[in-house]
């Protein structure tokens, strides 16, 4: 719960879920985006995103697969928000989407990956970075 006096620290932070009028607010409902970090929503079906179980604060890797080749396009990105597909700012027209923090170059790579092939989001919270970035290795 957010008490009187704690609100000032939350002003300007980004809301991580849609909140109905009258709902108690929690600090977990907010995330601070720095001025140097970009946020990008990745539209993906829940079955390609840990069954829809991702939550703000999770770390994810983004994989692209096409023509029998899979590669990592983003590793260890923080999940900022998860659109549940029911509408609102992130859900759009009923589409599930996961918003991640990334830099400008990574945003370009993800945008390019979105334009072709299939994307999968893999929860990597607490995991070591992958040692193999492309499969098959000689692709």
């Amino acid at each position: 719960m957010v008490r009187t006096g704690e609100l000032d620290g939350l002003i300007g932070m980004v809301v991580t879920r849609s909140i109905s009028s009258g709902t108690l607010l929690s600090e977990r409902d907010f995330v601070m985006l720095s001025s140097t970090v970009r946020a990008m929503s990745i539209p993906v079906d829940p079955e390609h995103a840990v069954g829809g179980a991702l939550r703000p604060g999770d770390r994810v890797d983004v994989l692209q697969s096409a023509d029998g080749i899979a590669r990592y396009v983003l590793v260890g990105a923080e999940v900022l928000m998860v659109g549940d597909g029911t509408g609102g700012a992130l859900g759009g027209a009923g589409r599930y989407a996961v918003t991640v923090a990334l830099d400008a170059e990574s945003a370009l790579e993800v945008a390019a990956a979105l334009s072709e092939g299939t994307l999968d989001l893999v929860r990597s919270t607490g995991s070591a970075p992958p040692s193999v970035l492309v499969y098959p290795p000689d692709a």
Binding site: V15, T23, L24, L25
Partner: peptide
């Protein structure tokens, strides 16, 4: 009794929090 924050209006995910989006209620 303490006062806790509740949403004064419907707030969409992705919005930046502003003071007038919040009111306090005693619990």
């Amino acid at each position: 009794t303490v006062s806790v924050a509740v949403a004064a209006e419907d707030i969409s995910a992705g919005a930046r929090l502003e003071a007038d989006m919040v009111r306090f209620t005693p619990v």
